[in-house]
Amino acid sequence: MEKHLINIEGLSKRYPAQSGSADLTVFEDLNFGINKGEFVCIIGHSGCGKSTILNIIAGLDDASDGIVIMNGKEVVGPSLERGVVFQNYSLLPWLSTLKNITFAVQARWRNWTKDQVVEHSLKFLKLVGLEGVENRKPSQLSGGMRQRVSIARAFATQPQLLLLDEPFGALDALTRGVIQEELLKIWSETKQTVFMITHDVDEAILLSDRILLMTNGPHARIAESVKISIDRPRDRNTIIHDSAYYPIRNHLVEFLVSRSRELSGGESSKPLDTQESGAPLEVDPGAKNTEELEAEKNNVAVLVK
C-alpha cells in the first residue's frame, strides 16, 4: 500500500442527545487516505457532514471518534500545513486585497522581510488573475474576485494540504467555470494536494483524480471512491467529448439520485463492501474495456494511413 499524505481512520461525529431523543450520528467510521499531489473531491447531499469532515481535517472541529493522521502524526488543532478556503471567502473586510494575502504570508514565514512578503503575495495574486486591485477592500470586489483572493491566500502559504469547502458554491455559472480553470492551472503548477467539497458533479469530474461518494446522513458513510480516468490536462470544453466522461457522470448521478439513500448507514443497514483496509471500494466507471481500446487503436491506424 502506498503511503498517504493524510489518513482518516474510523472518523465519526455525534452530537449528544437532546432530551427525549437518541444521539445524532452525522457520520461514522470513515476511512480514507489522500496521496501527495492528489486532487480529491467529496460529493454528497446536504446534511451528510461534508463540511464537518473538512473542519475536522483542518483541525477546527473535533471528531467524536477516530483520528486524522498527517505525515505520521495525529492532527490536533489547526495548522499552517492545512490551508482552508471557506465557502464565504472569509476575507478580513478591513484589510485591502494585498493585506489579506500578506497577513497569511507573514504568519507563515515570520522572519521574512516586508519586501519578500509583498513580492510573494503579489505573485500569487497574479497567479489567480488579479492585478491592479491590490488596494481595494474585499467589499469593493465581486464575488468571483473575492474567492480568487481567498484561493490566492491559501495557495500563497503553500500548505501541504489544501482544503476547499465548496469554494464555488456562491458563484454564478460563468464565473465558476473561469475560476475552476484557474484552480486547475495553479494546481498543476504548484502540485498541491487538494481535498475539496462540492455539490457539482461536472465540477468534480473536471477537477479531481478521485471522487469520494458519501451516502445520506444521518449515519452517513463513504460508499465508494471513484477514479476519474480522464487524461490531463483537462479542458472544460473538450472534457465532455472524452469517452470516459459520460460513464463517470452517469455513475455519479445515479449514486446521488438513488444509491446515496439506499446505502445510508444506521441500525438496519447492511455493512458496506469495503477494501481490506476499511477504505472505500475503488471503482473506475470510465475504464475503457478492451474492445474500445482496440477500436481506438484502429482509428489511430486509420488516421495514420
Binding site: A58, S79, N88, W94
Partner: peptide, 27 residues
C-alpha cells in the same frame, strides 16, 4: 467565527489574534 477560524488556521496566538483580528473586527 469565520474570521476567528482564519486566525486559527494561520496559527496566530491568542494575543496576535486579539490585536490583528478581533480588535479591528470589533472596533
Amino acid at each position: 467565527n469565520d474570521w476567528i477560524n482564519v486566525a486559527r488556521t494561520h496559527e496566530l496566538g491568542r494575543v496576535r489574534t486579539a490585536f490583528t483580528v478581533i480588535l479591528p473586527a470589533a472596533a
